[in-house]
Structure formats: structure tokens, C-alpha cells
Design a protein around this nucleic acid. Structure first.
Lengths: 133, 133
DNA sequence: ACGTGTGTACTATGTGTGGTAGTACACACC
DNA sequence: GGTGTGTACTACCACACATAGTACACACGT
């Protein structure tokens, strides 16, 4: 299964579902048009409450990551206009700024940050689940 | 004042205090040995509860960002061994990975991410509060 | 027309975190 | 001994997260 949930982590479970599915899509494990498990099925598989999964699906639909067809199921959406794009890029900038502050307090130089970023990108492009089939 | 608190934001207030102080130090607005306002004073200034500020100070002390002297006050610590350094760098990596996923869903290329990072670093080094006095 | 599979909506309940309020204590310094 | 400091409590409220259970609305195959 492409999803792994850790109820212990501070990150809310529904958010882990959202992030997990987005990661699977970004990695190409899930592709445009692929059908996702039903709310009830995924809940059973992950031993979660259907409401929790439904909340995750709602969020993903709002971000236009998936498409929901009542009575038929939910599917990975085709890339299209993304809502709130500017706001979300702004939030990415804030996150990066936070990274710089944290780096400073870890006594890292900006070069160290670049290097770490490079490493993360490499690991991202390398692993088995890499590109689409 | 170097601190700005927005109780509306989803980020907990005490965390905003923590981050705000760490940012001020990283920017050089606060320097090694500088005295911070007392728990009660800062609470009054920011219209917060003393307990909330105390919680922030506790967290900052745990990270060795500040030093606390009972009865005397709290001061910006001198750079030294940082606790949990590896764990925190791991967390930075996770954050960067999340950034890459988010970027993908915003239809950004890796070059776009690099460029944004560059821009954030520039803005970080530029502004008025820049280097130490 | 009906049954099944789907997402959705609602109420209720329990738990944990965040925040405030108030009080009391412990220590350092003048 | 008084003042300024951080600390430790207890109590209370608000909110988000999660679960549980029930019911509804829509699509599709038969």
C-alpha cells in the first residue's frame, strides 16, 4: 500500500492522508485518472474512521488534486488551474524563511542549507518509486 | 518593538513568541547577552497571559537559545552546543521534502524552487534590520 | 424498480492542546 | 525586608481532532 499513517505523530491523521496522497501523486505512484479507494475502504485499510478519510478527500478536492463523482468514486484529477496559487507560494516562502532561521540556530551556513536542499532533491529523484511507469 | 503577535493565525501564540525571538536573534536585532523583558512585562506589552510567555521562554531555554537566571532575568545565550541537532536537521529535510511535493502540485519545476529559495535568501540578507550593529 | 456502492451530512462523545486567570512559591539582588 | 524575577500549581473555557453511529443523495448495473 502507498499510504502509511502514524497516529502517534503530532501531525493530524487526516493531514497525513492528504500529504500521503499528494506525495504518491508527485512521485508518480498514482497517476491522473487512477481511482482511489472508497472512503469506507480506505478507512478500513488504515483502521481509521470514515469521517477522517472523508475530511482528507474533501481537502484534496478543494485543492483540485482529486475529482469526486458522487456515487462513482474519487479519481486523481488532471493537472489544471490550481486555486490560491499565489497564497500558497507565499506560504512556501514563509516556510523557507523559517528554515533559514532554524538553520542559523543550528549554526549552519547558507551554503549548508543549499547543500542539504541539494541532497533532499537527489533523494527525491533517486528512489525506486521514481518516475512514472 | 521587535515582536509581532497575531492571535488569529493558526500558529499557537507561544510558538509565535518562540519563533519571533529566534528570528530577532538570527537577524541580529537581539544579541548575545541582551536581556529579554520579564515574563510579566512581555505579557503586558503583547497583551498575553504571563503563562503563555513563560511557556515560550521554557521552550527557548530548552533549545539553549536563552539563558534563565532565577530572580535576575532571561538573556540571549552565547552560541554553544545545540541539543537534538541531528533530529532537527532531519526535520529540516522533511520540511524540504514537503516543499518539493507542494511545489509539484503548484506545477513548479525544481528550478522554480531554487529560484524562490534564492529570492528568499536575498530578502533575508537585504532588509534594514540586517547585520549586527 | 431495485440493490449496491459511492460521497455527504448530521449529532453525539471523548481527548488533547492552547490560552487565560489567579494564587502561591523560590531565588537574586539591593 | 522589599522588589523583581522565573516557576508551579489549580481551575476553567474554547477549539481541533478523532471516533461512532445513523441517515441521506446520487450513479450505475441488473
Amino acid at each position: 500500500m502507498w499510504l502509511r499513517i502514524e497516529p502517534r505523530l503530532p501531525k493530524p491523521v487526516y493531514q497525513q492522508v492528504v500529504d500521503g496522497i499528494k506525495e504518491s501523486i508527485a512521485k508518480g505512484v498514482l497517476d491522473q485518472g487512477d481511482k482511489l479507494p472508497s472512503v469506507r475502504d480506505l478507512a478500513a485499510m488504515m483502521t481509521l474512521n470514515p469521517n477522517t478519510v472523508a475530511k482528507a478527500y474533501r481537502e484534496l478536492e478543494h485543492e483540485r488534486v482529486i475529482e469526486v463523482f458522487r456515487g462513482r468514486g474519487t479519481f486523481v484529477a488532471s493537472p489544471a488551474e490550481v486555486p490560491d496559487r499565489n497564497e500558497r507560494i507565499e506560504k512556501m516562502s514563509d516556510t523557507m524563511k523559517q528554515l533559514l532561521i532554524e538553520a542559523h540556530h543550528l549554526q549552519m551556513t547558507e551554503d549548508d542549507v543549499w547543500q542539504l536542499m541539494q541532497q533532499v532533491m537527489n533523494e527525491w529523484n533517486t528512489p525506486s518509486g521514481g518516475a512514472k511507469a
